[in-house]
């Protein structure tokens, strides 16, 4: 074993993890020390704890549970609060994090166990704003209208949202006193309002955004755009939808 390999083998990673055994139990913290591996991410630390579930003091504990899927920041499943900021655990590289690394679940969502949360409310929000293109029917409708390239380029940015929930976790106006859907849903409504076929259901999305927990609950704290792992211009989406909703509301009122 070379001198540098010995040096690396001795290096460790210190983690402080906020845990919770079930949806109704009290949270508690546990500390872990795992061996350092070159280039490792937070997921690798959690895998190490799963392999060898022993806390800092050498006591055997239940392994920490978390969600993951793609491991390349395109699925959104491993979002958790790492050192105070919501982000994907897969792209949270240990070399770039201050130690001890503090992990906790995104508590804006109901916690199921440890770092696993129930993000159903995000899917309910997407259903509410009709974030899809309805094309089902009994016969072939043929190809839809084309989209201008310049619009496709920015719409692509919005389509990168993977519903991880970082924007919802960081938003001060998503709390137990409001029913705000969150920035991602507004941005998705903008995406599908821009889609040439999606446009045909534009008013329904705008009505939904004017409904309970809609766009008016946004207080422009703009944390969403800061924490979005995909760099989606969420605050631009919110303002753009504010404009659409303003025109829609005034137009609808004057047409009646």
């Amino acid at each position: 074993m070379s001198a540098t390999a010995v040096e690396v083998a001795k290096k460790t990673v210190h983690l402080i993890i906020e845990r919770q055994d079930n949806p109704n139990s009290q949270p508690y913290t546990q500390e872990f020390v795992v061996p350092y591996v070159n280039g490792m991410n937070v997921i690798a630390c959690l895998m190490e704890i799963q392999r060898n579930p022993i806390d800092k003091n050498g006591k055997a504990v239940a392994p920490v549970t978390w969600e993951m899927n793609c491991l390349e920041e395109i699925c959104g499943a491993c979002m958790m609060v790492i050192n105070g900021k919501p982000r994907q655990a897969c792209t949270a590289l240990v070399d770039q994090l201050e130690q001890p690394i503090r992990l906790r679940p995104a508590r804006t969502f109901p916690v199921i166990r440890d770092l696993v949360v129930d993000r159903s409310r995000m899917f309910d929000a997407l259903k509410k704003v009709k974030a899809w293109v309805p094309i089902d029917g009994t016969y072939d409708l043929g190809p839809g209208p084309r989209m201008a390239e310049k619009d496709r380029q920015w719409a692509y940015e919005l389509s990168r949202c993977f519903t991880c929930g970082a924007c919802v976790e960081a938003c001060p106006n998503v709390n137990e006193r409001t029913s705000f859907v969150g920035a991602f849903a507004i941005s998705q409504a903008r995406l599908f309002n821009e889609h040439p076929t999606g446009k045909m259901h534009r008013e329904e999305r705008l009505e939904a955004l004017m409904g309970e927990g809609g766009i008016h609950e946004c207080g422009n704290a703009q944390n969403c755009v800061e924490v979005c792992p995909k760099g989606i211009p969420l605050t631009t989406s919110i303002a753009a939808m504010n404009r659409q909703v303003t025109y829609h509301a005034m137009g609808a009122w004057l047409r009646k």
Partner: peptide, 10 residues
């Protein structure tokens, strides 16, 4: 200006 959709871009 943001609420009424006047200033949209960053």
């Amino acid at each position: 200006c943001v609420h009424w959709g006047i200033t949209v871009g960053a």
